[in-house]
Design a protein around this nucleic acid. Structure first.
Length: 865
RNA sequence: GCCGAAGUGGUGAAAUAGGUAGACACAGAGGACUUAAAAUCCUCCGGCCCUUAUACGGCUGUACGGGUUCAAGUCCCGUCUUCGGCACCA
């Protein structure tokens, strides 16, 4: 259904709705707030396994307000927390705001409004929206990363990193974004068809050497990789992190130069192919290039270097993988066979990986193969697929598979694995090389040339000496500024605040110094916020150790998959550093991670593949649509919500028209939590109807009589399934089961005391407002939030009589009712007695009978005669 | 190209120690109530065929092609498609 009909739809729903959801929801939200219903404290009598920390990824408070994606994860954790409380758990469930960030600053540049003001307003709006959904957060623990009481400790942690030598200054080529006026981390730059772009805003970025603070995350690469093993995380996220860390094992090998002093070191993962190295390639930035280039080739080499530097921002990572390069005129010596091999430079070799130089084995590496082909370099095969195999030339393409060494002197015949080991050992004995490990992971560029971030608490002298600000002088507050515009020189707007920048050294010597003007990236605040929730007002420590020991690690962390390698890797890194200095009790912060799927929306596509905004389409008949303007048919597709497609759903509108309980339930009923799924307002109506049916059910008179056994059974099956499914976060099927119970209840004129109260408690985690209201109407005086979740009687969840399927050759021929536990022999007898089955058996010979009690009987037959 | 996830009615989806495919819901059809409409309640609802129509029944069906099994959405082999991530990392 296209949205053009939605106003009518909504009017319809409003007129049909009997239950006063607004009144009820506001009433109970106020009750929870006034009674501090969800405030949680540490009680040492609660056993460790009943203390549960359930965490949501906190939002960046943008001006746009809450998106439908936010309530999805938040509802899931809220249902889970409410369920756990009813199961006797002590639950820590906090919320806060990731409130430093670019959009507030961009807005400040445009309007002159201080980011603090807009941030405050946005937080207020977000808080209202989140409260209106009835989530059971302990709001006393709310934190915002931009507040000095919070970033004091972000700065403190930075100083710990600095003290451990994990923070350092470097003048390195970094991604610089003119439009954003700042440097970006590798992870914040995406490759588009037009070249590299900033992830935020899609602005062009260029590589530029600038002075930056770096964090040595690479020092933790191995642990970040290994410790993934024990985490209960989605395999896909673990894979993405492994891939990002990009560990490879190989060897560094030294090649001596033919006509020069010194040598050239390369990194290779295939030392077994050393005999096939027919040339070498250096990165254009490699320090040896100038020294070894011969006079005849120098001009060409320099020209290539300049080209590479110029195009580095665009074409160097271009999709067109046509190889380019220049010959230096110099030669190296292959240590295995003493052959002289030419040294080239090419931009397909990155200065930042390995040693910035490679030995090229064109026969067994695709890139080297393409390069050799283009420049007519030798290709020697040194790996055959079979032992003792021979190979033919020319090759069509490089063979990268493992096999057995050939043309490799004494090493010929060895398997790839074996050969690697033997060659490395040999190199080590000769002093020509050693085992080596490399990671794709780079150190984290930790500074931003922005205003709206945590100031880095350091003072520098003119000579470049660095003085950390003493911990007892933190926080180093962000000063007020006149202009939020970056200085334009690659420096932050803070550089223009001279009376802040110019200070004296913190050692009390009175010697003048300058403050660091870079600020921290947005990721800094979110690296440790889960720890601050534990003890949000502590001004002596970032969090009391007793609180950390009480709650950590986070038992369940729910959020979007878009943070797979950024936030989640950085937070793990900081946590490990804190662990190493003895500040936290676990090596990993988040034990279990669940990614909610994205909520998408419908869009419409023309035959040429272009998309049409939803409001320019109408439905012709079921399942077919046309573009209103042209009358041409369009097809329905699933797309991300976007303003341009006019298919963005605003949670405020949904709550206004259907209520928070409907919104919560619908987002859970749409499909499995982890799966992405399209929003369909029609589906919401079904949920709203369900809640309305509960409301009207409550109007039926209630009696003390025993409920009929079939209703009791329905209830106990419901309690069982809702409990199990809530526990495993399968909310959609839990809701289905509750619908079945309500449908069953409608078969009776009355409600029954024995089934009604347990049912209210059963759905309370899902639609808490409605449940509280109905609970109160039954005469209860206080919240049901801590009432025990009802128990089920296993005997009542099993049907004594079940349908048994009768099959002949695996095909369904009849169904009979039989006792669930009836034995195979008796079942077979019953089946043989069945008329329909007799018809089939009369003309056939029974070869085999499979009888499964409680399930089926299958006769395997063949025609007689 | 590599890694990961997934393909089930008109739609969102259920069901995997292998055992009735489509629970629940939306949309649709029919009926009850109503002066009428909405709302509500009840019934039907994968496709094809048989049948005047029904009932009964038959065939077929979980992306496609094979296989294992008394029995496959579920297990195995191969192929295709979609989505997400990475992409000259030697």
């Amino acid at each position: 259904m296209s949205t053009c009909t939605e106003p009518i739809l909504r009017a319809t729903i409003l007129s049909m709705s009997k239950y006063p959801f607004h009144e009820i929801e506001l009433k109970w939200q106020q009750y929870w707030e006034e009674n501090n219903t969800f405030k949680v404290t540490e009680d040492s009598s609660v056993p460790k396994e009943k203390r549960t920390y359930v965490l949501d990824m906190f939002p960046y408070p943008s001006g746009a307000g809450l998106h439908v994606g936010h309530p999805e994860g938040y509802t899931a954790t809220d249902i889970y927390c409410r369920y756990l409380r009813m199961k006797g758990h002590r639950v820590l469930h906090p919320m806060g705001f990731d409130s430093f960030g670019l959009p507030a600053e961009t807005y400040a540049i445009k309007t002159g409004t201080h980011p603090e003001i807009t941030t405050k307003q946005n937080i207020e709006k977000f808080r209202q929206q989140i409260r209106r959904l009835g989530f059971s957060y302990d709001w006393d623990r709310e934190i915002s990363t931009h507040e000095a009481t919070y970033y004091k400790w972000t700065q403190w942690i930075f100083l710990q990193l600095y003290k451990k030598g994990l923070a350092y200054l470097a003048e390195i080529p970094v991604w610089y974004c003119e439009a954003l006026g700042t440097v970006l981390a590798n992870e914040e730059v995406i490759q588009s068809s037009e070249g590299p772009r900033s992830e935020i805003g899609g602005h062009p970025v260029v590589r530029k050497p600038l002075r930056q603070w770096m964090l040595k995350i690479t020092e933790y690469a191995e642990r970040l990789l290994n410790d993934l093993e024990d985490l209960d995380w989605p395999e896909s996220i673990k894979a993405m992190q492994r891939n990002w860390i990009g560990k490879s094992v190989g060897a560094n090998v030294r090649f001596s130069l033919a006509d020069h002093e010194g040598s050239l070191e390369v990194y290779t993962t295939r030392p077994d192919t050393l005999f096939g190295a027919t040339y070498m390639v250096l990165s254009p930035e490699h320090p040896l290039v100038d020294a070894i280039s011969t006079p005849e080739h120098r001009a060409e080499v320099q020209k290539y270097q300049q080209q590479a530097a110029l195009k580095s921002d665009l074409e160097r990572t271009d999709l067109a993988k046509d190889k380019t390069g220049a010959f230096t005129g110099a030669y190296a010596v292959n240590p295995m066979n003493g052959k002289k091999i030419p040294i080239w430079i090419s931009d397909y070799i990155l200065i930042s990986y390995g040693t910035g130089a490679i030995m090229a084995v064109p026969a067994h590496d695709e890139r080297d193969f393409a390069f050799a082909l283009k420049f007519g370099l030798d290709i020697i095969r040194v790996v055959a697929s079979e032992k003792g195999g021979t190979v033919s030339l020319p090759m069509e393409e490089a063979t990268t598979e493992e096999g057995f060494a050939i043309n490799s002197g004494d090493f010929s015949g060895l398997s790839t694995q074996d050969c690697k080991e033997k060659i490395i050992t040999w190199l080590e004995q000769q002093g020509l090389g050693r085992r080596a490990i490399n990671y794709k992971l780079r150190d984290w560029i930790f500074s931003r040339q922005r205003y709206w971030g945590e100031p880095i608490p350091l003072v520098l002298t003119d000579e470049g000496a660095i003085y950390p600000i003493p911990e007892d002088q933190l926080p180093l507050a962000l000063p007020m500024v006149e202009s939020y515009k970056p200085a334009g020189t690659g420096e932050s707007p803070l550089a223009t605040v001279t009376d802040w920048v110019n200070t004296t050294l913190p050692d009390g010597s009175g010697i003048p110094g300058k403050r660091e003007t870079n600020t921290m990236p947005q990721w800094a605040g979110s690296c440790w916020y889960y720890l601050r929730y534990l003890d949000p007002t502590n001004d002596k420590e970032f969090a009391g150790r007793d609180k950390i020991d009480y709650w950590m690690p986070v038992d369940l962390y729910v959020g979007g998959a878009e943070h797979a390698v950024l936030h989640l890797l950085y937070a793990r890194f900081w946590h490990k550093v804190l662990y190493d200095i003895g500040a936290v009790n676990t090596v990993e912060p988040f034990h279990r991670l669940v990614n909610q799927g994205m909520i998408t929306s419908y869009a419409y596509q023309r035959s040429d593949g272009t998309l049409v905004p939803t409001d320019e389409v109408e439905e012709v008949s079921q399942g077919s649509w046309k573009e209103t303007k042209t009358g041409l048919p369009v097809s329905q597709v699933i797309a991300k919500m976007s303003k341009s497609l006019k298919n963005v759903i605003n949670p405020d509108d949904i709550i206004q028209e259907f209520g928070a309980d409907s919104m919560r339930l619908y987002e859970m009923f749409m499909g499995p939590l982890r799966q992405s799924k399209p929003w369909n307002t029609n589906g919401l109506i079904g949920i709203h109807r369900f809640l309305d049916r509960i409301w009207r059910l409550a109007e039926k008179p209630i009696v003390d009589d025993q409920a009929p056994v079939e209703l009791k059974k329905s209830l106990h099956k419901t309690i069982k399934k809702v409990g199990e499914d809530t526990n495993s976060l399968d909310f959609n099927t839990a809701i289905s089961q509750m619908m079945i119970f309500v449908n069953d209840s409608y078969k009776f004129e009355h409600r029954f005391k024995g089934t009604w109260a347990p049912f209210i408690l059963c759905f309370a985690p899902y639609a808490p407002h409605l449940a509280e209201e109905l609970w109160q109407r039954e005469g209860n005086k206080s919240t049901l939030a801590y009432e025990p979740f009802p128990d089920f009687d296993p005997a009542l969840t099993i049907d004594d009589e079940v349908e048994i399927v009768l099959q002949v050759n695996g095909k369904l021929r009849a169904k009979i009712m039989a006792a669930r536990d009836l034995g195979a022999t008796e079942l077979e007898a019953l089946a043989r007695a069945n008329d329909r089955i007799q018809e089939y058996l009369e003309s056939s010979q029974v070869l085999k009978v499979v009888a499964v009690p409680g399930r089926l009987v299958n006769f395997v037959v063949k025609p007689r005669g």
